[in-house]
Amino acid sequence: MAGSRVAHATLKGPSVVKEICIGIVLGLAAGGLWKMHHWNEQRKVRQFYDLLEKGEISVIAEEE
Rank of each mutant, 00 (worst) to 15 (best):
M1V: 06
M1R: 03
M1T: 02
G3E: 15
G3F: 09
G3R: 14
G3W: 09
S4T: 15
S4N: 14
R5Q: 14
V6T: 12
A7D: 08
H8D: 12
H8S: 10
A9W: 04
A9N: 03
A9C: 06
T10Q: 12
T10H: 08
L11R: 12
L11G: 04
L11Y: 09
K12N: 08
K12Q: 12
G13D: 10
G13Q: 10
G13H: 08
P14Y: 08
S15F: 01
S15P: 02
S15K: 06
S15I: 07
V17Y: 04
V17S: 13
K18Q: 13
K18T: 13
K18G: 10
K18F: 07
K18W: 02
E19A: 15
I20C: 05
I20F: 06
I20H: 02
C21N: 10
C21D: 11
C21R: 12
G23H: 03
I24M: 08
V25M: 05
V25P: 07
V25Q: 00
V25I: 10
V25R: 04
L26K: 09
L26S: 09
L26G: 07
L26N: 08
G27D: 01
G27M: 05
G27P: 03
L28Y: 00
A29Q: 04
A29F: 00
A29Y: 00
A30K: 03
G31S: 02
G31C: 01
G31A: 02
G32Q: 01
G32N: 04
L33E: 01
L33Y: 00
L33G: 03
W34Q: 02
W34G: 02
W34A: 11
W34H: 06
K35C: 05
M36G: 05
H37E: 08
H37F: 09
H37Q: 13
H38D: 11
W39N: 12
W39T: 14
W39C: 13
W39L: 15
N40A: 15
E41A: 00
E41T: 02
E41D: 08
Q42I: 06
R43S: 05
R43K: 08
R43A: 11
K44V: 13
K44L: 11
K44D: 14
V45A: 11
V45N: 05
R46W: 11
R46V: 10
F48T: 04
Y49L: 00
Y49H: 07
D50G: 12
L51C: 12
L51G: 09
L51Q: 15
E53F: 13
G55F: 02
G55N: 04
G55A: 00
G55T: 01
G55H: 00
E56W: 02
I57T: 01
S58N: 07
S58T: 14
V59G: 03
V59E: 12
V59W: 00
V59P: 01
I60L: 11
I60K: 13
A61G: 10
A61C: 11
E62H: 14
E62F: 14
E62T: 15
E62V: 14
E62D: 15
E63I: 12
E63P: 08
E63K: 09
E64A: 11
